[in-house]
């Protein structure tokens, strides 16, 4: 029975991925990409990796889908996508096929020629878990044992949003598309947005002893913000520019302050003080959740504002 379920799921994932790539209409590709995120989340659950499943469900099936649909709407509006059809050029297609086949072969080779690990990492993690301040292994690795990686990841996110903000040309034309003034949607939002906010906080809190954590909670928060944004309640208009910038940088700043304060205390970088690890991790995660939510929202709203060249190009064309 289990084998049958796994085989069906595997066939489904492969078929959906192939259809998403080969589909002639861009809209259909986007829809299949959303479905791919959903089925991948199911696959991760089957593999017993609920942390990745949560992230995949929130980012893969939720936010990426909205971003792609939004981009599609923009392409249509600016007239860059005259027809729904797109014909790939053959040299490019050949190059893409060649490189992806090479990648698959390399990955297969890597999987089948795995060296036997010299250190049993999961045993080490289990051994050190009582000292980490949290009781969930993934959170312990992400925010204590390998927190350096997480710090750099957050740095990359902040860098991405800074580049996006720098490329944004016009402040006033931040969102060229209006929101939906739909009473049904607004009634729905009054039920949905509080539930989303509570779930976001739940995921953050759950991270200390169950699957969850700052990234999933941040994605959930961003989804609530994006939903409000789409229905015409603009968070960026409510908050001042300076406030928004503060929110964007808060998570990285708190993380960096905690990281460097241990150096001042004479300990190595990112070493938490004895007994205070749990509280500090929660503090960092709280700041990270807010920042990740705002960063994802900013990336979404930046993508909304058309660059100057495309706008003039569109007006020239008509």
């Amino acid at each position: 029975m289990n084998l049958l379920i796994d085989l069906t799921l595997l066939t489904g994932i492969l078929a959906i991925a192939a259809t998403s790539l080969l589909s002639r209409s861009l809209f259909q590709s986007v829809i299949f990409f959303i479905l791919l995120g959903l089925t991948l989340a199911l696959g991760w659950i089957r593999l017993g990796a609920p942390d990745i499943a949560l992230a995949e469900a929130a980012i893969g099936a939720g936010i990426t889908g909205v971003l792609l649909l939004d981009t599609l709407g923009h392409l249509k509006k600016t007239g860059k996508l005259d027809k729904d059809e797109h014909r790939p050029s053959y040299p490019r297609l050949l190059l893409a096929i060649l490189s992806s086949v090479t990648l698959v072969v390399l990955l297969l080779w890597a999987v089948f020629h795995q060296p036997t690990p010299a250190i049993q990492l999961h045993l080490l993690v289990e051994e050190a878990l009582p000292d980490s301040g949290v009781s969930h292994q993934i959170t312990a690795v992400l925010l204590n044992f390998r927190s350096y990686d997480t710090l750099l990841e957050v740095g990359v996110l902040v860098l991405a949003v800074l580049v996006g903000l720098a490329l944004q040309t016009d402040q006033h034309q931040q969102d060229s598309l209006p929101g939906l003034p739909n009473p049904l949607l607004h009634a729905c939002l009054t039920l949905l947005v509080p539930a989303m906010l509570i779930t976001s906080m739940y995921l953050l809190w759950a991270g200390s002893d169950r699957p969850g954590g700052a990234f999933q909670a941040g994605a959930m928060l961003a989804a609530a913000f994006i939903l409000l944004h789409l229905s015409g309640i603009k968070l960026s208009a409510q908050l001042s520019h300076r406030m928004m910038q503060f929110g964007l940088l808060l998570g990285f700043t708190v993380f960096l302050v905690v990281a460097t304060s241990s150096v001042i205390g004479g300990r190595p970088l990112l070493a938490y003080p004895d007994g205070g690890a749990g509280l500090l991790i929660l503090l960092i995660e709280l700041a990270l959740t807010l920042s990740i939510g705002l960063i994802l929202l900013s990336l979404f709203t930046i993508a909304n504002s058309p660059p100057l060249s495309s706008r003039s190009g569109g007006s020239n064309g008509h």
Binding site: I45, L54, I63, D70, L192, S231
Partner: peptide, 23 residues
């Protein structure tokens, strides 16, 4: 934890529909 994933999925399902209708 699969229930948490179900919760996330259920809450985010509407996002795509709203984005589609508005954009």
């Amino acid at each position: 934890a699969a229930r948490d994933t179900a919760l996330v999925l259920a809450l985010l399902a509407m996002l795509a529909a709203v984005a589609f209708v508005s954009r």
